[in-house]
Amino acid sequence: MLKSVKKRLPIPGVLDVLDELNPFKVKRQRIMNFNPATSVASRKPAETSKITVFDYSGNGCTEETLVSLEEVFAFRDKPTSTWINVDGIRKDDVHAICQHYMIHPLIEEDILSIGQRAKMDDIGERLFCQLPMMYFNSEASTIDLEQVSIVMGKNFVISFQEDPTRDVFDPVRDKLKIPGSRIRNGTMDFLCYSLLDLIVDSYFSVLDKLGERIELMEDLVQHYPNTRTLARINFLRRQVFLFKRGIAPVRDLVNGFLKSDSNLLEDNVTKYYKDVYDHIIQCNDLADNYRDMILNVQEMYHTQLNLKMNEIMKVLAVVTTLLSPLTLIAGIYGMNFHNMPELATRNGYFYTLGGMGILLVLMILIFRKRGWF
């Protein structure tokens, strides 16, 4: 019995080969925008790295671009406030900075990881937040995401960026150079708020670009409801969903600052974080509206396609109806019976064609009067 069963078993690997050769098989790969914090090795070190330091107080501000990493260590014990911005993430550099500034290893892993969900952590005497910085690529009509990590201590803020060529922090740099500015005379939590506020405000510029593309899609659907337009709609829908998925956790991040009991956060700065919270709520609402709009555009496309198909079917139905009686007459006189009196008529051929033409014109006039075409 066992031998008979074994004989019926397929040759190992045959089903796999047939499955690969199946032309109707659709291969799908689901890419998750999340990696655990332990996947440090998956990040490639940045080709270029740039460290910029703003050391400031109410009396003055100095901006330095450091040549060596060791120069960063001297700013830890200074009585002034320091903002250290690291453009381009390298594992050795991040490890050295975290070791010197006594940043928890879990935070270090989050900084080195990729595809992290926006979050906020309060570990020891350090506040840490991580969120996406977004840019709209006008040439490709895509959204570029850059992961930004911010670590706040008593007298320093360290920000880590992936892309050394662009960011949205120029307004903060300009205000630090202005004597008497709120950032320059404020504490570290106000500087952290300023960085978060600029990142959140940059989301609105991306939303404006997405809104323009959605309006363009509405015009294209009305005039060109074809497969190319559908592909553009699906592509834009993915960009809107990507944007929504990126900014949704930022609300919990800002809420974490509002609920934190850390000594690094002063009560008079909390109202500024509430303002950022209001902005991210508004941004989420707009993203939801745009998501509904792009779904409506997709439904509009299918509606336009159905209307176009109905028009085609209407024309074909009218043509078929017009030709039906003519086909009937031609079929009757094409039966080739010997006892058909009309076949012996001298001008029967012309009479039949004339009658068919008159019938066709009458049907066209009747259909036209009824508004069928």
Rank of each mutant, 00 (worst) to 15 (best):
Y135S: 14
K154V: 09
F160P: 05
R126F: 05
V148Q: 02
D167Y: 08
E139T: 04
I143V: 10
P164I: 11
N137L: 04
D167W: 09
D122R: 01
F128S: 02
C129K: 06
N155Q: 15
E125C: 01
D170E: 12
V148C: 13
I143A: 06
M134N: 10
M133L: 15
T165Q: 04
D122W: 00
P171H: 11
A140T: 07
N155K: 15
F160Y: 10
V151L: 11
P171M: 07
D144W: 06
F169A: 03
D122I: 08
F128K: 04
T165R: 13
M134P: 01
V168Q: 12
N137R: 04
G153P: 03
E125M: 00
R117L: 04
V148W: 11
L131I: 15
M134S: 06
L127H: 08
G124I: 12
S159V: 09
V148Y: 10
E125S: 05
F169T: 05
V157R: 04
A118P: 02
F156T: 15
D144I: 15
D163P: 11
M133Q: 13
F128H: 00
R117S: 08
P164S: 14
R166G: 04
Q130M: 11
N137C: 02
R166E: 03
Q161N: 06
K154G: 00
R117P: 07
F136G: 13
L131S: 12
F156L: 09
S138Y: 14
P164E: 10
M120N: 01
N155W: 09
M152A: 08
F160M: 15
L145C: 14
D170I: 10
A140M: 06
T142G: 10
V151I: 01
Q116V: 06
A118K: 00
S159G: 14
I150Q: 03
I143M: 05
I123M: 01
M134A: 14
F160T: 13
D170F: 13
D144P: 12
V157G: 05
V151S: 08
M152S: 07
P164V: 08
N137E: 15
T165C: 09
M152Y: 04
F169W: 03
Y135K: 13
F136H: 00
D170H: 09
D121C: 07
Q130D: 00
D170M: 11
L131D: 11
P164A: 01
Q147G: 02
E162A: 14
G124K: 07
P171W: 02
D170K: 10
P164C: 06
N137V: 03
Q116K: 09
S138R: 12
S149G: 11
S159R: 01
S138A: 10
P132T: 09
A140F: 08
F156R: 08
Q147N: 06
V157K: 08
V151Y: 00
D121G: 06
Q161W: 01
F136K: 12
E139Q: 10
T165K: 10
I123C: 03
D170P: 01
R117Q: 11
L145Y: 12
D122M: 03
I150E: 13
F136A: 02
S141W: 00
R117D: 15
R126V: 00
E146Q: 13
V157A: 14
M133D: 12
D121I: 09
M120R: 07
